[in-house]
Design a protein around this nucleic acid. Structure first.
Lengths: 194, 194, 194, 194
DNA sequence: TATGAATGAGTGTTCATTCAT
DNA sequence: GATGAATGAACACTCATTCAT
């Protein structure tokens, strides 16, 4: 990657971050290109130099976030840990992504309210992949006897729902750090499986 | 209430339902007054005959839903049941409201993205009231020894998050009825407290 | 005129008064049919029973006012008075009409902003007639030597402009009654002619 | 001021002029943003690039006009002239502003039908300032014996009313130039004070 | 007579998007 | 690369008007 390309990539990253951050706060439709640009002391026009349109900007932002989360999740999966430890770690990582990732995107806004066509397919695909990974974690635990038998799909939704919900009420001013909170939640949720 | 008033109230109820339904599908900002009206074979203008503006329509809709849920929750609280039975019943009722109530409102959309001033205060108040009621259910169970000791607040958020999330993935085409599903979820969540 | 017709006429008069009054306060375009009806504890629909449309209501109201003013002016003209006394009396009568008649119509709103076609012609005709009458008063005074020679048209506009303007700043709370005020203004304006 | 800023200012001035001109003809409420834009071969959207909303556009236009008139009036006040000459000059200047300024705003439309809050306060303030200045002119003349004693307030209203009224009937096609007309009117009005 | 209900054309306003410079 | 300017499609909301009852 040339120096120029790196610069462009860095700029795009800045814009993506700004976009996700504003959208997390105001919601997709209520967020204007101007909001996103203003936060970076740019103008609307400049943003369009880097991104074709609003949907593309959000698509790329969201995709990256999902991919990064996916990668982390897979790293966890590859670690040499007990099923319980793995799932707990996956949960903690997930919560950190949800909260610091400023993404109120795992929840609430249904992807088809924002994306269309191939973009929508890709996002749904990534989400499913992520979900599948979580399912595998649960599956493994059930197989090796660490977890009791449960309806994997439902429990998965419970876990994801409980964790994603945190983005709504989590406040950095609270007494617990994200990690502590994540661990607490993970502990409680694990009870379902033990 | 006069016959005329009843008619008006019925019409308003129709509109509210239509509004909640379209919003649940497309999101608040993406839903136009025309969408809401069209679904009832009305015109925009007619909707404005019944509701001052979009925000008021959504406010009234949402408020009513919260109040009805609250009332049901309080009925459950007043019943002569064990703590476990009470909480399970509360959960089932909640899930039915979430799913049939077409409300993607307990989740995702932060109220302050939609409401302002007194309306916002009232909605937050109702939500808190609801939350408090759930907390009380948990508290009672802990006090009478039915539940183990937990961080009430966190567990409450977990429960609500898990249940509200259902609105996103529940499909009436699935093999389980709402009640069955609700019971399954309730069973799993109760494990956290037993 | 039958009893029924009398009743109708009385109702129409009420509506006209209400219309002129609200329009004087809020302006023609800013005044809604609802405003006019509400002031009489009626509904919009009822007003339409008596008047074809908004323009007709205002046209009839305005026409009547002009005709009544015209009649009064002609009565003054017919009286046995000196030119000076006549003109003063005409001024006082005019000011009373302007102020109590709640008509901010002699001024400000150009008739062609409100009326069209025949209605417009008729209103312009009535205004001209009124103006001509005032001119005749001045003319007579100049002919019998009571007034100095002036450019009738200009002086007429000055007089009407000065008097009509009163509707903007006159306040019933002031120390002077309408008649006192009208006499003051008339005295000052007469200086132009003496 | 940079070149760009100058360009913007010129554009805004164009828009203001267009606005005042259309409003003078059709009235505030009957004038649409599209009317204003169309006259400049612009689109509505472009006007909004320069002005926040209709009220602001009109506010700025009107304010500027009042300020310019005020400045001219104060220049007249500062000149070394007899009271009579000063007042006549003030009148001529005022009439020129009224007529060329395309403002049917000194009259007819009550400010509170258009402006609210601080904007309204500012406009009323400017009007009062202007009125006060005229009053001072009369006052001075009375003090130095040039004018007879009169009720300043009433005479002031007469003068302003008479002059503002001209905007309604003045036609550039008439035989007199604005200046000639203004001088005629001034001569007549001065008779009140001499 | 009176009115509740419905309507549709119109108005102010926003905002994603484009493009010349 | 960046942006100031312009645009047009879309939307919330208003209001004169109609009409069945």
């Amino acid at each position: 990657m040339s120096l120029r390309e790196k610069k462009v990539e860095r700029k795009k990253e800045e814009i993506r971050k700004s976009a996700m951050s504003v959208i997390a706060e105001k919601g997709y439709h209520a967020t204007t290109m101007e909001d996103i640009a203003a936060k970076l002391l740019m103008t609307k026009g400049s943003v369009y130099y880097y991104f074709k349109d609003k949907e593309s900007l959000v698509y790329e932002s969201h995709k990256l976030l999902l991919e990064q989360s996916m990668e982390q999740l897979q790293n966890v999966l590859a670690e040499e840990l007990t099923s319980v430890a793995k799932l707990r770690k996956a949960m903690v990582v997930h919560m950190e992504n949800v909260i610091t990732g400023r993404t109120d995107f795992f929840i609430g806004v249904k992807p088809d309210q924002v994306f269309e066509g191939e973009h929508l397919q890709e996002i749904l695909h990534l989400r499913n992949q992520y979900s599948d990974c979580m399912n595998r974690l649960i599956q493994q635990g059930m197989e090796d006897g660490s977890f009791v038998q449960v309806d994997m799909k439902i429990v998965n939704y419970i876990i994801l729902g409980a964790m994603n919900n945190a983005v709504i009420w989590y406040s950095p001013k609270g007494s617990k750090s994200i990690e502590e909170l994540a661990n607490s939640i993970a502990d409680y949720l694990l009870k379902i499986l033990l």
